[in-house]
Design a binder for these strands. Structure first.
Lengths: 203, 203
DNA sequence: GTCTATAAAGAGATAGAC
DNA sequence: GTCTATCTCTTTATAGAC
């Protein structure tokens, strides 16, 4: 199967992490299928055969990076969920962590989100399960805020979650780290739109 | 270059339109690079050589479908923009047309949005120009609503447009025509979130 | 307009030497 | 751990008959 990207003894696979990072950049820039193992080997300064000494298959790279980013964003947002007892404050903290963490590993997240169909059946199921679990966590916090009377209840928590993730996730397509808006500022802006809306009357 | 998908005499290239439609479904399901011309030919009930009698290159299919959907959504949203003199009503009508038109040709739109990097340099520039022009149209309507005092002015029209398109565009990743929400209902819901927000206090 | 056959290039992955 | 060389398969695209 695939080697453990996290949880392995320190240093044992720092090389693996570097390979995942470079692969993510290439996969995002050119597409997973359009990136050859020769491209990746060249970007790493290795021959193709040497590259295969460190990894199993091309597909395992895609799977491993999906697991890495999903574990990371789940851990970060779960921690944020524990930051306050107040539902609305929890939601704000989670949105901020989601945006900042997603943009901090932008190419891995973007690749994982858009290249899911390139995974093998088993790997795709595993990644989908992790995503579903993440979605449920968001659903629960939204539902909690609805029960507390803070968030409107005329829309189901599932649809509110879909709208919220719409608002957050498309950002990976256009965000540039060298632009004039920081991830934290962007998170605040998107939170404000989601909660207050764009109307003057409601600001 | 590429044959004219719109504007040609009726019937002359109805075959071309069918090919684009089938290609969009395959490109979206499997990815542009992962879909072979053999796959496409088989889906059309043709041999590969016969398929090449009707088209130029694989890449031209991707370009042509991008032009088709961009022309279509631009025309639909422009018409909606002319539907009312009131800025907020115009915005509502435009959002509805954007969502309904995008979902009406979901696989073409989704493919065009996510496979831009697979286009040749010249084709990519051409598509990007069309998209930029579309974005400017949205910017203008938002700026107009800001000047009319209907939309908050503490966020630039450009950032508001990015947030709005975030909210609308990610929908193509999860929307299912056989689900329990129609495109029109979804458009209303997303418009409501964008304008009023999710807070109870502002509803 | 459709076909069979094929050209020419590149893909993922491996063998085996060092 | 790294390399050169290679295997095998598939790719886009075309030639040329019907």
């Amino acid at each position: 199967m695939s080697s453990p990207p996290l949880g392995a003894p320190k240093g044992v696979s720092s090389r693996h992490g570097e390979i995942l990072s470079v692969a993510a950049d290439l996969f995002w820039a050119q597409g997973y299928d359009a990136t050859s193992m020769s491209d990746l080997a060249a970007a790493l300064g290795l021959s193709k055969a040497s590259l295969y000494h460190h990894i199993e298959t091309k597909e395992s790279l895609l799977f491993d990076m999906s697991v890495v980013v999903l574990r990371r964003i789940t851990a970060a947002v779960e921690a944020a969920a524990d930051s306050s007892p107040e539902p609305l404050e929890r939601l704000r903290a989670m949105v901020r962590e989601h945006v900042v963490t997603a943009l901090d590993h932008q190419t891995m997240n973007a690749t994982s989100l858009t290249e899911l169909r390139a995974l093998s059946d088993e790997h795709r199921v595993a990644v989908t399960r992790m995503r579903d679990s993440y979605d449920r966590m968001i659903d629960e916090v939204i539902a909690e805020a609805q029960h507390a009377g803070a968030i409107r209840a005329d829309i189901s928590s599932k649809l509110l979650r879909l709208a919220l993730l719409n608002l957050l996730n498309w950002t990976i397509f256009w965000f540039r780290a060298d632009g004039d808006v920081s991830p934290a500022d962007l998170a605040d802006l998107l939170t404000s739109i989601f909660l207050q809306g764009a109307l003057v009357a409601s600001g």
